[in-house]
Design a binder for these strands. Structure first.
Length: 490
DNA sequence: ATGCATTGTCATCAT
DNA sequence: AGATGATGACAATGC
């Protein structure tokens, strides 16, 4: 082993301290070779400095950590060792030999200011975040009660009876129609009784047909073709809901008659009752009385008045149109389940096939179905509107379901990311502690090396005036610090 | 009386 | 070009 004690370097600007064989880390036995070094032959010192160097070199990986750019010594080829032991940069390393106790870990708080708390979660491509929607579905199903349609008395019908008409919606729609040059509301008003300007038209303002696409609908008093079993009724009303307080006694009677008559025949082509008549997703949407659907239970107990199903039934335009069958307060008789607005329209226009066929048949079958009947333009328009609305209703339900699923999914993802963030913060904290400890240790070793270095006169080198620098090829040099470096230390 | 949830509907865009 | 799906917005309704 070559003498390594008291390496004395010529006080040249750059003095090669020694040429480390290979890399200076990784536990390579240090056979320090100092050209021109003067041997003092102190065995114990030799061993000490060997150990010191080995320890020092063993942690040269610290260079992988942040290396504050210290102005290189003349050329950039030197990698200053000081950079491995930053002086006070973290409040731990010190320019002078540090007593062992100085290596106690600094508190995390000492470094808090040096690191951002923010951990960009996007950096983590965690596969776990890609939870498929399907996973949430079962959960959603537990959270989401089945979509049920309701059959509720129509408050709007009551309002209508009380002479309260018009809603903002109605006006809005009416204006919209007017602006398009087609006020269907006007068009739909009765033609049998000119004076019968239905206030309910406001409420039914969106009652049906596509804007500008649907001609005035025929009403039950409007002879309609192709409705077997129907009885022509001469009454004044639109095809849709009537209004009892505006109806003449004659029309009322006729209306009632018509309704009864229709009902007596409707089952000839309707599905089994109203339940299947308008039920694009009957199994899903029909109110089933049970504990989870008290409304359905309640509605089961309702006894709608069938005789007025055309004049007072559900004049609501939106929302619960399917459940907008008005229940008269006075004694009433039982009747089939309430109809939706479109059902009533279909009934009024004597559409000769059931709602679910209108809505659910594939387009080809649907068109074929249409060819089997001779329908007026009004009927055709209504059928297409019903189909459109029915499909859109289902689409809206699906859309809302997906939205809820998405929210659930995102909530889960958020929780996951928050947990992940906490984990990363903890991890960072531990790394910071570890780094502080290692830097502290490096400072100690760095200082210890200096305590063993001697110049030609046997005097120690000042750690303030010299620094150890390592070149990329692994060689370490003892170089005098520039004034600027000294100032930086201060 | 008020706020919220639900639902149907319309308008609009994309496929 | 028309049918259909998706979705935001709105309004009605019930709780």
């Amino acid at each position: 082993m070559c003498s390594t004690a008291n390496y004395v370097l010529p006080l040249r600007r750059t003095c090669e301290v020694f040429a480390a064989p290979g890399r200076l880390c990784g536990g390579v036995p240090m056979t320090n070779h100092f050209p021109g070094a003067r041997t003092h032959g102190a065995t114990q010192e030799t061993q000490e400095i060997d150990v010191a160097w080995q320890e020092l070199m063993a942690i040269t990986e610290l260079q992988e950590f942040e290396v504050p750019s210290q102005s290189s010594y003349e050329t950039a080829q030197y990698q200053t060792m000081e950079s491995m032991a930053p002086m006070g940069a973290y409040g731990v390393a010190q320019p002078h030999p540090v007593p062992p106790h100085a290596c106690e870990l600094g508190t995390a708080g000492a470094y808090e200011g040096c690191y951002s708390e923010e951990v960009p979660v996007c950096q983590r491509q965690d596969g776990g975040a890609e939870v498929m929607y399907g996973h949430a579905e079962s959960e959603l199903h537990q959270r989401m009660p089945p979509v049920l349609s309701h059959t509720q008395p129509s408050l709007m019908a009551l309002r209508e009876q009380m002479g309260i008409s018009g809603t903002s919606q109605g006006h809005r729609r009416a204006n919209a129609c007017f602006s398009q040059g087609l006020n269907r509301h006007t068009l739909w008003t009765t033609h049998g009784h000119g004076s019968h300007v239905r206030s309910a038209e406001d409420l039914e303002s969106d009652s049906g047909l596509s804007l500008g696409s649907s001609p005035p609908l025929a009403s039950p008093d409007n002879p309609v073709v192709g409705a077997p079993g129907y009885r022509s009724v001469d009454m004044a009303m639109t095809y849709s809901d009537g209004e009892p307080d505006n109806m003449t006694e004659h029309s009322r009677r006729a209306h009632a008659h018509y309704s009864l008559d229709y009902q007596s025949h409707s089952h000839s082509y309707l599905y089994s009752g109203a339940h299947s008549y308008f039920s694009p997703q009957a199994a899903l949407s029909h109110a089933q009385p049970n504990a989870r659907n008290p409304q359905a239970v309640k509605e089961q107990g309702q006894v709608p008045v069938n005789n007025d199903m055309f004049n007072d039934a559900g004049v609501s335009s939106r929302g619960s149109s399917q459940s907008s069958f008005y229940t008269k307060p006075q004694g009433s008789i039982s009747s089939p389940a309430p109809h939706s607005r479109d059902e009533r329209r279909a009934i009024a226009l004597k559409i000769p096939f059931p709602m679910d066929k209108i809505i659910n048949l594939p387009v080809d079958d649907f068109n074929e179905l249409l060819t089997q009947y001779t329908l007026t333009d009004t009927q055709l328009a209504l059928v297409r509107d019903i189909r459109r609305r029915g499909k859109n209703k289902v689409a809206a339900q699906n859309c809302r379901k997906r939205k809820l699923e998405s929210i659930i999914h995102l909530e889960g993802e958020l929780n996951q990311l928050q947990t992940q963030r906490e984990h990363l913060v903890q991890e960072r904290l531990e790394f910071q502690r570890s780094l502080a400890f290692i830097k502290c240790r490096l400072t100690d070793l760095y200082a210890e090396v200096f305590t063993h270095l001697r110049d030609e006169d046997g005097q120690p080198y000042s750690i303030n005036e010299y620094s150890l620098q390592q070149t990329p090829d692994g060689k370490i040099y003892l170089v005098p610090q520039t004034n600027m470096q000294k100032r930086e230390q201060c």
